[in-house]
Each structure stands twice: as structure tokens, then as C-alpha cells.
Amino acid sequence: MSSGGKRDGIILLAGMAVFALLPLFVKNDFYLDGFILIFVWGAFAGAWNIISGYGGMVSLGHNAFFGIGAYTSTLLFLRQGVSPWIGMWAGAAIASALGIVLGVICFRLRSHYFALATLAFGQVASIIALNWRGLTEGAEGLTLPIRPGFAKMIFATKLGYVYMGLGLLVAVLLITYLIDNSKLGYYLVAFRENEDAARALGVRTGRVRLAAMAISSALSALIGSFYAQYLLYIDPSSVIRIQIAVQVALFAIVGGVGTVFGPFVGALIFIPITIFLRARLGTALPGLHMVIYGGILILVLFYMPKGIYGMLRERFFPSSRIFK
């Protein structure tokens, strides 16, 4: 490894140390919430990035996978007493099965059509969550009993959630890194850049897309389950409404799609903005933070198409094997 590689390794370790240790010194729950949200949204944006950033298949329906994760683990726990540690995997299995089905039925669809199909899928999922009251309690939502317990994945302190969130984030980053360095990653990018050329070169684009879809939806569901455990109360508007799909895409794009760390950087930028504005404004100027989100999104698309992380990487780590 070159000295540049060593430098990058040190930077990475230092960064990880900051996120691992800083929460220990933060005594304010309000800020710890911020950490958790950054990890949740960073991980979720990373999951979206696998299919939409690497594979270029823009999904506007990831709210469905996130929500399926949240509802599956919560319902299994409430109705069957199944520990969320197991329930989250059930959610992941359901989500990735649905992801594969969606991938298969949208097989022929390109670009805009795929986006519209996923939008419809996400919307159907949220309508179901809202109206199948027998299962989901509809808009009233589901409440998890607050008594903490490790087996129930309910932690007594925020720090428990902080570290579990960090763990999920690291897992997503690691998986993305491995994909980026594997045939799957190369194939996904080839598919994104030009499907005909990829096929002519022997890339089995069908399988590649389904694999990416399965991974991306499963990870989204796992994160959704965790988020439900953190909120301890879920309803369609907190875990499955369509705005969630838009927001996750927005974070990833602003951070930098098709990169390992970009989506996380997106969350790192946006969550503090949200928290700051909420703290300053309360409910005084509703919608202002969304106006800012939209403005940043458009500015980034126009002037930094590779996203903020993408741009920084090109400037400081152009050929880094770590900062991908």
C-alpha cells in the first residue's frame, strides 16, 4: 500500500473514532438523537444507493421496504412475542422477496418508467399500511411497550441506540465497499452506463439488477426495524409515507451517489440542518426546512453532479482505494 493509502487509512480510522467516541461525551439526549438519526439515515441512504446509485435504477419506492421492516418486526413482537432481533430478519426477507418481485415485473422498464413504477409500489404500500387496520391499526399506529430489555431490542439509554445505529451504518458501508470492489459492483455500474454494451460483454444484467435490488431492500428493512425500536411507536407517517422515499434519495444524491461514503455524508449534512432549524424555529415556519432541502438538491444536481462527497474525493483522494 502506498503512503497515500496509509494516509487514507488513518483518516478513516480517525473518523470512525470520532463517531464511536464522541457520543460518550455528549450528555444531551437531544444531540444523541441527532447521532442516531444520522446513522439511521446514512445507512438507509447507503442502502438506496446500491440499486439507484450504483445500478442507476432510480427507486422512488424505498419507503415501502423501510416500512415493511418497521411493521414486520413490530407486529411479530406485539402479536407473536417474537424478539425484534429475529423479527428484523423476517422483515428483511419479506422486503427482499418483494424487491425481487418488483425487479422481475419491472424487468423491461427503463429509467423514468422504473421510477414511476416504484413510486406506485411505494404508494400502494403506504395505502395498505393506512387502510389495513386489522393488521396495522391504520393511522393510530402501533406502540411498543417501553420496558427496556436487550432481548426486546429496547435499550435503557440513548447510547444503546447510538451504537446499534452506528453498527448498522458500518455494516452498510462495509457491504457497499465490498460491492464496489466486486464483480457485482462493476457489473452494476456497467449496466447503469450502458445496458446493451454490458450485455454484449457478457454481463448478466438481469441477475445483477435483482441481486442489487434484494440487497438494497433487505438492508432498508433492517434499518426500518431498528428505527421502529428506537421510536417505540410507528404509524404510516413515521415509517412508510412516500416522503421517506424522496428524502432518502435526496440525502444520497447530495452526498454523492455511486460512492461508498457519499450517502452517509448526505445524512451528515442534512440531519444537523434539520435539527438546527427545528430547534431555532420550532413550528414557526412550517415547510422552511423542506424548501432548503429542495434548494440544496437542485443546486447540487446542477453544480456538483457527483455530490459533495464525490467532489471532495475527486479533489483530495482521486485514486484512493479506501475512499471510494
Binding site: S111, I253, G287, M290, V291, G295, L301, P305
Partner: peptide, 19 residues
């Protein structure tokens, strides 16, 4: 522009107008 920009510029616009 890439598909991502095509979609999300108008998505961004919709977010801004709505809010």
C-alpha cells in the same frame, strides 16, 4: 443530463413549490 438529474430536479422543484 443523467436520469438522476432529470428526475430529481423536478422532484426538488415540487418540494420547493409545495413547501
Amino acid at each position: 443530463a443523467p436520469i438522476l438529474s432529470q428526475i430529481f430536479v423536478t422532484v426538488g422543484l415540487s418540494i420547493i413549490i409545495e413547501n
